[in-house]
């Protein structure tokens, strides 16, 4: 895959998902991991983890993917592919009342978001097949869900605790 093609793919996914970081995961998983094989599942997961522990925009993990494939130029190109389509904001600001009232757009974004929930979970199953090969990994997955959903811990604390738990289990078993 050339740098140009990567940039085009990311720009396309960006436009399709309105720049939503998590929604891009199934698209990246299908095209970069499964079909072209330039990225591993581990790399995609690591990149997504970065997005969760850094401040700022949540879709900038594509810079990490760009870096993994092409170094600094890849990171810059991937970032530009995300940012530049955002300039459509300037003309939109002038006609926004009209746009906000548009039920078509509301319905479209709602349908897209709902479908994306199914797609993300499908991607999770795909990735899990390759990643969760050890029983401890399953325990960590469940533990992380409990920490974030039940205990409401923040991401950094959760990741640190989950990792410690993984190491502890490995050492005990």
């Amino acid at each position: 895959m050339s740098l140009w093609k990567l940039a085009m793919l990311i720009a396309l996914f960006n436009v399709m998902t309105f720049g939503n970081g998590p929604v891009m995961i199934p698209l990246l998983q299908t095209h970069l991991v499964e079909r072209s094989g330039v990225l591993t599942e581990d790399q995609l997961l690591y990149a997504f983890t970065i997005a969760r522990v850094t401040p700022g925009q949540a879709n900038f993990y594509v810079a990490s993917i760009g870096y993994m494939l092409y170094g600094i130029p890849g990171a810059i190109v991937a970032t530009l592919a995300i940012v530049l389509p955002g300039y459509i904001m300037i003309p939109l600001m002038h006609g926004y009342e009209h746009l906000r009232e548009s039920l078509w757009i509301k319905g479209f974004t709602k349908g897209l978001t709902v479908a994306s929930v199914g797609l993300i979970l499908a991607a999770v199953v795909q990735i899990a097949r390759g990643t969760l090969t050890q029983p401890i990994a399953w325990i960590i997955l469940v533990a992380t869900l409990i920490m974030t959903q039940l205990f409401r811990w923040n991401v950094l604390v959760t990741l640190a605790s989950a990792s410690c738990l993984g190491l502890l289990l490995k050492w005990l078993l």
Binding site: Y46, F48, T49, I120, V124, A128, T131, L132, V142, G166
Partner: peptide, 8 residues
Amino acid sequence: LPAALALI
């Protein structure tokens, strides 16, 4: 990695 999957 499993923690990241949970975050997704």
